[in-house]
C-alpha cells in the first residue's frame, strides 16, 4: 500500500476546506474522480476514515482535527522545502567559501567572482583570508588559492598562474630609480617581510637569501603582502612581496622594483580530494582554470 505523500496531504486539506470533491478538484485543477481516488487511497494508507460522508459532502471526523493540523504542517514544510531547492540551485543556500590571501583575492579571484556572479547572481560567496590548507582541512573552506603552498596528501594542487617576488621602496629611496635590484642590494636595509615558518613566500624568500649567502632577518614580519605595503609607508626601507598585489592595487608614494635573479611563484588552486565540490564551487574552479573573464 502506498504511503501518505505530501500531494495526498494537499488533497485531504483541500477536501476539508471545500467540503466536496468537486470543489476540491476545481481548486487543485484535478478531476473529481482523481480527488476521490486520492482520498480513498490516503484513508487506506493511513488506516482510518478521515471524513464522514453526509449528504454528498465530506465532513472531517471530530477525531481527525489534530490529523488535519498535522497535514497542514506537511503542506507548509514541503512548500518550504521546494523554496529551499531553489535556494540551493541559485547558490544562495550553500555559500562558496574560498580561502586565499588579499593579493590573490583582489586579482585572480576577484575576476573569477565577477564572472561567476553573472551566472549565479544570487550566489553567496565567502572570501576567507586565512591559512588555506588549514581552512580546507577543517572543512571551513571549499577551495583554497595560495602561492606555492605546503599541503597534506588529501589536498590536490592545480597550478593556475605564475607571478614573482618584487621589491617595494618609497619613491624617495635611492633604489627607486634602479628598476631592478638583487637581494645583495638589500643587505643593510630594514626589511618588512614574511615569517619563514608561517608563510610559503617567507620560506621561498629566506631560501633565496641563504642561496645568496645572506641572512634573512626582516625587522618586521607580516602575514600578507598588502600589510607589508601599507606598513612600508611609515616604517622600514623595503619590502619583498608578490607581484600580484601591485597589479591589483596602486600604492601612491611606493615604487615597484624587479628582483634579479627572478624568484618565481606559482599560484595554486587547492581542493580536497575526498570531498566533492558543490556545483557552484565546481563552476568556479572551471572559471579559475580556464581564465574566463566576465563579459
Amino acid at each position: 500500500m502506498s504511503a501518505l505523500t505530501p500531494a495526498h496531504a494537499a488533497v485531504l486539506r483541500a477536501v476539508d476546506r471545500c467540503g466536496t470533491t468537486v470543489e476540491a478538484a476545481r481548486e487543485l485543477h484535478l478531476t473529481q474522480s482523481a480527488i476521490s481516488k486520492i482520498v480513498a487511497r490516503s484513508e487506506a494508507s493511513l488506516g482510518i476514515a478521515v471524513f464522514d460522508r453526509r449528504d454528498g459532502r465530506l465532513v472531517l471526523r471530530p477525531q481527525a482535527h489534530a490529523l488535519m493540523r498535522a497535514l497542514g504542517a506537511v503542506e507548509d514544510e514541503w512548500r518550504a522545502l521546494r523554496g529551499s531547492v531553489a535556494d540551493l540551485r541559485s547558490g544562495r543556500a550553500l555559500p562558496l567559501r574560498i580561502a586565499s590571501t588579499p593579493s590573490i583575492g583582489q586579482g585572480l579571484i576577484a575576476q573569477s567572482i565577477r564572472r561567476i556572479v553573472t551566472e549565479y547572481p544570487q550566489a553567496r560567496i565567502e572570501l576567507i583570508m586565512g591559512d588555506a590548507p588549514t581552512e580546507l582541512s577543517q572543512g571551513s573552506a571549499d577551495l583554497g588559492v595560495m602561492f606555492s603552498p605546503r599541503v597534506t596528501d588529501d589536498i590536490a594542487l592545480t597550478p593556475l598562474s605564475h607571478a614573482s617576488i618584487i621589491a617595494l621602496v618609497r619613491e624617495d629611496d635611492p633604489l627607486a630609480c634602479r628598476g631592478s635590484i638583487t637581494l645583495g642590494d638589500l643587505r643593510h636595509r630594514r626589511l618588512i617581510c614574511f615569517d619563514r615558518e608561517k608563510s610559503p613566500l617567507g620560506w621561498l624568500i629566506a631560501r633565496a637569501y641563504e642561496e645568496a649567502g645572506l641572512d634573512y632577518a626582516p625587522f618586521m614580519t607580516v602575514p600578507y603582502s598588502i600589510s607589508a605595503a601599507h606598513l612600508l609607508a611609515r616604517h622600514g626601507d623595503v619590502t619583498l612581496i608578490d607581484s600580484l598585489l601591485t597589479q591589483a592595487q596602486r600604492f601612491d608614494g611606493l615604487v615597484k622594483l624587479e628582483v634579479t635573479p627572478t624568484l618565481p611563484l606559482t599560484i595554486c588552486l587547492m581542493t580536497v580530494r575526498s570531498r566533492p565540490l558543490s556545483r557552484l564551487a565546481g563552476r568556479f574552479v572551471d572559471i579559475l582554470i580556464s581564465g574566463e573573464k566576465a563579459d
Partner: peptide, 18 residues
Amino acid sequence: RPALGSLRRARHEADMIR
C-alpha cells in the same frame, strides 16, 4: 528534515486515531 518529520507526525496522528 522538517518536511520528513511533518509526514511522520501526520502518520503518527493517524495511528493514534486508529
